[in-house]
């Protein structure tokens, strides 16, 4: 197995507010990213997947605090624990954009409306590579060309509102790849796009990953997208990574009840006679302050038993590289039935 590029160990993130009790948005996250591989981080809205991704670049708001855990990044200058760096420090800034970069969900609002896309891409090249503006622009044009923006030379002078959603996201990708990062974080990059454009962008990302050999952390709530792009998957529920492993294995034999429930709620194309009703997960997601001390899925789990509500399940290895956090895996069935 290749050396991991970035590993997040036992990370928790707490949001503080002067008027309300603290909210632990991310409780216990362990993730490992390896070069050339894509890890999909899956979960419903508000489960902490974006917060986790932003924590890697230390882009969280000032009221967010990484309480425990470490984010070990094995970069150009040896291992650093990103969780211990100051967000606006030179060390952090030399990683951002240059070694780890990010694409965001909404390409319209994520690009400055009053600067040309060329200007916005040039900037990052000038900043990290110290090129002259003219050389940077040439590089920008080459990049735009590489991500499939037609007429790159002219489009570099266009403003974001003059481009279509797909082109904007391509420009965003060009910006993220400008300094050939080792890790690309994609925070729901296709959610705001229509299905055709989505497929094109996914193809592009896969192809660019082959070209650049970078690791990718891909955040989405769309399991179809996961199947297309990911090598590994990590399923998050209410701040916990409940299951992770090889994407095919997890899809085929999900071990955690939440993952199982997710899989059975995906609609499938079938002949009318074979159709079965989708099984929704009962109940709704509790707010983080009502979360059980133990497994966060307890309140909605069909198999919940004795230790679930009170004890945090351990990270249990199911098979090579396949982990889940569930008491069903450690306790015998008899115990479960008691």
């Amino acid at each position: 197995m290749t050396k991991p590029l970035l590993s997040i160990n036992d990370m928790s993130i707490v949001f503080t507010s002067p008027d309300e009790p603290d909210i632990e948005a991310v409780r216990q996250v362990d993730l490992t990213l390896t070069p050339g591989k894509t890890l999909a981080l899956v979960g419903e809205s508000g489960c902490g997947k974006s917060v986790t991704a932003r924590a890697v670049l230390r882009l969280l708001d000032k009221n967010a605090d990484i309480r425990t855990g470490e984010i070990v990044y094995d970069g150009r200058d040896g291992q650093v624990d990103i969780a211990r760096l100051k967000p606006d420090s030179t060390a952090m800034r030399s990683i951002r954009g240059a070694q780890i970069s990010m694409i965001f969900q909404e390409p319209m609002s994520s690009l400055s409306p009053v600067h040309t896309i060329g200007n916005q891409i040039d900037e990052i090249i000038v900043l990290h590579e110290g090129l002259k503006p003219k050389q940077a622009r040439e590089r920008t044009i080459a990049l735009l060309d590489q991500v499939g923006v037609p007429g790159a030379r002219d489009r570099a002078n266009a403003y974001p509102f003059e481009l279509s959603g797909g082109l904007r996201q391509r420009a965003m990708i060009a910006m993220a790849l400008a300094c050939t990062p080792k890790l690309l974080i994609a925070d729901e990059p296709t959610t705001a796009l229509d299905v055709t454009t989505q497929a094109q962008i996914l193809d592009l990302l896969r192809q660019l990953q082959d070209d650049f050999g970078m690791a990718m952390l891909f955040i989405t709530h769309d399991l179809g997208v996961v199947a297309e792009i990911a090598d590994d998957i990590a399923v998050m529920y209410l701040g916990d990574v409940v299951e992770q492993g090889d994407v095919f294995e997890v899809f085929k034999t999900p071990k955690h009840p939440y993952t199982q429930a997710l899989m059975s709620s995906v609609p499938q194309l079938q002949r009318k006679a074979d159709r079965v009703r989708l099984q929704p997960i009962k109940g709704t997601v509790p707010s983080p302050k009502d979360r059980p001390v133990g497994c966060s899925f307890t309140s909605r789990c069909p198999h919940a038993f004795g230790p679930c509500a009170g004890t945090r399940p351990e990270r249990t290895q199911v098979s090579e590289g396949h982990m889940a956090r569930c008491h069903l895996l450690t306790h015998t069935k008899e115990e479960a039935l008691v």
Partner: peptide, 26 residues
């Protein structure tokens, strides 16, 4: 609070440059 400010931060720009070039301009 707009996302493009986060984008600018994610590029690795120093905070003062992020603020002056993007949100102040708008």
């Amino acid at each position: 609070k707009k996302p493009y400010v986060t984008t600018a931060r994610a590029k690795g720009l120093p905070e003062w440059k992020v603020v002056l070039k993007y949100p102040v301009r708008v």
